[in-house]
Write a protein that binds this DNA or RNA. Structure first.
Lengths: 213, 213, 213, 213
DNA sequence: CATGAATGAGTCTTCATTCAT
DNA sequence: GATGAATGAAGACTCATTCAT
């Protein structure tokens, strides 16, 4: 009944043993980003991962568990990237901000990270635990960095106190808009992130340059 | 509208007859915004509308049809609001922009419109037809207005040509960010739209004021 | 697509509307008795009830809910039968007991009741709530009746105090044994309840008759 | 049995090698008794036996095979116990019966045997082969012994012919009832086997003593 | 032999959709 | 038109069984 054809050993199986959970997570991430949590079928995740539905349950207790694992797993790397990005930079305030914004574009338009962001934006509200994690690990850190830069700028006299220094998030908002636009309208009205970045940096420059006057 | 006082007829039922589709749409909008398309159960929509599941099918051919109808229906009013908002204003460029931005905050944080925006952002990618409609009716119009304002500003010499004039969308991005933030993190890290607006306007002012120097 | 053949109306559907839950319960009882709770497939219950799996869920929230409903529902009638059986009998102690035992055989070998008993014996331990209900509604009542008869007999001097008067349950044990035997061995070593009854009554007579000596 | 002291071999493992099947059977017996055949998971059996699911298949071809093996294996010992119990006893009929009944209580309330009995009562009907085996090895032998005792009693004139001599099973029915009660209602309405035994013996005495009169 | 990863055939449960009343 | 019972097609999850190591 069984057909032991393949000569030596099924190489695929061996190689995969350890990678399995990661493969499932990657497949899940892709499917969740494409269809949303509710509309994603575990069957499709399995197929994409090259396995069978039941196998998912060896690693994840439920669809929801996979969802959360997938999201959590993606945050680590993104988090590190963020970390390094502005560490120990001694430039001027505007250089720091410019650098940070460039990093953000690079980060958020990285395929994996974009999947993550998409899912968070789409489903975050229905999965507060995940949204909270995302917020804690990424958003709130980024925010802290931003605040620190601005405060340093104020302290150095490179920035003048004004309402937008109290809410410097607005400085990064264009990249969020680009992301959302890309997520929703890209099929028929694509944007070029580069142009957005350029305009973004231009806006930044203008916003901070007043001091020069 | 006219109430023919035919004896024992259930007035409530009659009165509702016309309002039914709208009630169903409102209920649908609320549920879709809360749970997303796939996770919304028509049973819940019906209950919220005070009717029975089967009745929905008298007005809408399918769940998807209801979804599209609900979204389309919400766009009309929003569209008009937008229309009027900047028509025939003869002020300075910055006044026009300020006014437009204020309108945007008011509009996008109107409960009904916010539901709509939430749904579009969450599900737009999976319903290109709807996203396209939304884009055509609202986004692209808003964009046109914005572009016209900027061009007028350039023509009038109130603005100097520069990258961000070519992508003036960045000027409105903070409100989008506020919306997304509100949508995703509001449960545990709420924002105050007013502060955002303030910072937003501040940013605008700074970005455009260079010329003054 | 639909074939509205049958002239007037589908009579079956109308007639069934109210009877549905009862029909499902009856089907469930039969299947549960035959296969046990875990091995019973709702699909089979549905088929036996002439409906479709999904329909069960209009009436019962889960397999377990159906199980409990089925068992509870069967207890009412059995309970009443028991009630009447010994009410207001003024005969001698032995006549009362004889009558009670006859009733028990009749009751427990009634098809419906037997299903019930089988299920309780097989699954009771795993469904304490059900077992407890059964105990309260049927077993403990029967026991009370028995105890009252015996006490009356002692008071009247028809019985002499002795260990078995303190545990008169032994007086009915043969019918339980018959039931269990019938339940387990009937396929290859059937018993005749009548013979058991005869022997049972004989035993009873002998056990109580000593006093005459 | 013999322990070849081959150097560094893991003694535990070796020692177990022979005991394995028995350990699995014991674990299976416990699980089957607790949950019934269908609801028992081999995973749990394995865990209880301190091994892994797959290992079961080295000793038993299938869940059902394990079930049958477990039940068969339990019967041997019980069978022997029964055997000896009444062999070559030369006492009076009532002494023999008394002795037999005592043995029955002791036997059936022995943990291992009780598990067995529980399973047979619960699942016997669905596993005729097992029920038949149980019947042949234990029930029918016990019955034969009982019949022989009664016949001897009749021959000796210690008993008078009467219906219950033809169905002497009723004489042991209280212990069956005690067993079933214990099995089903013990959680909330426990019985004391000792009191049952006492009443049982009392009943026996009364039933047989008429002759003395 | 033992392990544990993998499989795939179920089974319960849900829900959009239909239809007789 | 409205109702609610019924349907049936999925989809999540479980678990006996197999198999490479």
């Amino acid at each position: 009944m069984v057909e032991p054809t393949s000569g030596p050993v099924d190489r695929r199986r061996r190689r995969r043993k350890d990678a399995r959970p990661q493969e499932i997570i990657a497949a899940g991430l892709a499917e969740f980003a494409e269809r949303g949590f509710a509309a994603t079928r575990l069957e499709d995740v399995a197929t994409r991962a090259g396995i069978v539905k039941g196998t998912i349950y060896r690693y994840f207790g439920s669809k929801e568990a996979l969802f959360e694992a997938a999201l959590s797993s993606g945050m680590g790397p993104a988090c590190e990237t963020l970390q390094e990005s502005v560490a120990d930079n001694d430039g001027s305030t505007i250089d720091l901000l410019r650098s940070m914004i460039r990093q953000l574009y690079k980060l958020l338009f990285t395929p994996d990270v974009e999947l993550l962001a998409r899912i968070i934006i789409s489903e975050g509200r229905r999965f507060p635990a995940v949204a909270e994690l995302y917020h804690r690990l990424l958003v709130s850190r980024g925010r802290d960095i931003l605040h620190r830069i601005v405060e340093r700028g104020l302290a150095r006299g490179e920035l003048l106190p004004s309402p937008f220094c109290a809410t410097p998030e607005v400085l990064v908002s264009p990249v969020i808009m680009a992301l959302v636009w890309h997520m929703v309208f890209d099929g028929f009205a694509p944007i070029e992130p580069e142009r957005f970045l350029e305009a973004h940096l231009d806006l930044l420059e203008r916003a901070l340059s007043r001091r020069d006057a």
